[in-house]
Design a protein around this nucleic acid. Structure first.
Lengths: 237, 237
DNA sequence: GGTGCAGAGTTTGTCAGCAATACTGGGCTT
DNA sequence: AAGCCCAGTATTGCTGACAAACTCTGCACC
């Protein structure tokens, strides 16, 4: 038994690390929009929910705040981020800058197994799109983000991959907030085109396609300050 | 940190937040190479040094680990990061991808006041370079990084700015680890050229210049596994 | 009716203390 | 002599508790 532990210590580490678990679960909930922007996450409440002490929850909340998914105000608590339209624009500007390079790098390194993974993911996306309802829509947004993360993982650059994880998570929030309900399905064909370019190892095409894909996503957003929080945002900035 | 304060004066979070203070102080120490890679940072020790409890220190250490400056091993403690040559390559690859876009964006938005700040910074760099000794060299590395952060602050994209803060901090570590001692001074003229391009609002030139600048920095590194930690790294991977 | 204030109640920030885990040194076996 | 086992020590992970800060409700007052 000690043999297993000594040869693979890093596996066990993440297995029983409750901070990581809580962080991932909360992030999923935020990205899936089960937690609405602005919702307060009380330390005791979350702790009771996961049957963990406040210390552990606290650590997870700090990490999520670092990723930009939460906003922590001193002595007030942690709130699900409420990205402003300007923040959303910065987000997509960053993605437009980073993703083409990632796609190009991935095009040079993809393996057949990677392509198979991507095709499998495309199929899953198609299934989500054919369904109706809020649940399916959440799954669709999530799957769309995971597609981009898949490519980031193939770029071979762990640093950029981590940046992309943050960007995609925050993008999901933005899309859920500002997206028009029916239109996001256009992305599916574009994803397929990107996979084709990757399979051909056509870095230039992959980069071009992904930029226009991001443009389309952003174009489908309603990036105007909503009437509700307008005053609040004006006072905050 | 003065850069952050000058570009985002509305953020005064660190006024009485000791976690933030400890984090900044430790980061400075790491980036300045006063804390050698591999050094263990004991919670009690750091806490006694800053006259703070372990909880606060713990939080700061977790944040630094999130930024990639520390490595936390469960039940073992926090150690100053010891970036591998491969990690260094990924770092510069990421910078080559991100910084041209930042420079181009900055070129479109710079004000006269920004240019003045940059020129002042160039002058400070020159002073550091004319001096001798390890202290001056540390100051030079630090100032060189701050130059890039200044430009990132002018890009108008807070997300990319934060990415750059992380990349620059980790780059400082890498340069201090793998840099050849005398050669890094070549960067100064290139910085001046970049400022000139920004002043002309010549986005294309600024992007080109900054890429070749990054190339030069990386070319001046000795990115081979050193004899000491080679065995250790081999076992870790 | 609206404003200001005070107290209760809740939540966060921090600290000491306890259990669990990893390192260290000595003694023992081969 | 070299390697192994085991207890002692030190450090981390975490829980509970306390103080400070904030929010909310009710009431007096203008």
């Amino acid at each position: 038994m000690s043999i297993v532990a000594s040869t693979h210590p890093e596996i066990q580490q993440s297995a029983d690390d409750r901070t990581q678990l809580i962080r991932d679960r909360l992030r999923d909930a935020i990205v899936d929009r089960r937690l609405a922007p602005g919702t307060k996450l009380s330390e005791s409440e979350v702790g009771a929910l996961f049957d963990a002490g406040r210390t552990v929850v606290r650590s997870a909340l700090r990490m999520l705040a670092f990723e930009g998914l939460l906003r922590i105000e001193r002595n007030r608590g942690a709130f699900v981020a409420n990205p402003s339209p300007d923040e959303a624009r910065q987000l997509f500007s960053a993605r437009r800058l980073i993703e083409p390079g990632i796609a190009a790098s991935a095009a040079e390194r993809v393996t057949k197994s990677d392509i198979a993974d991507l095709r499998a993911h495309l199929a899953a996306e198609g299934r989500h799109m054919s369904e109706r309802g809020a649940t399916a829509r959440r799954a669709e947004i999530k799957a769309s983000g995971e597609f981009h993360l898949l490519i980031a993982g193939m770029s071979g650059n762990g640093i950029l991959q981590r940046f992309m994880e943050e960007l995609v998570a925050r993008s999901s929030l933005v899309i859920a907030l500002y997206g028009r309900s029916g239109v996001s399905s256009c992305g599916h064909d574009e994803h397929a085109g990107i996979v084709d370019a990757l399979e051909r190892r056509d870095a230039a095409s992959a980069a071009t396609l992904i930029v226009s894909h991001i443009d389309h996503i952003e174009a489908d957003l309603e990036l105007r300050a909503r009437t509700g929080p307008a005053l609040k945002e004006a006072l905050e900035l």
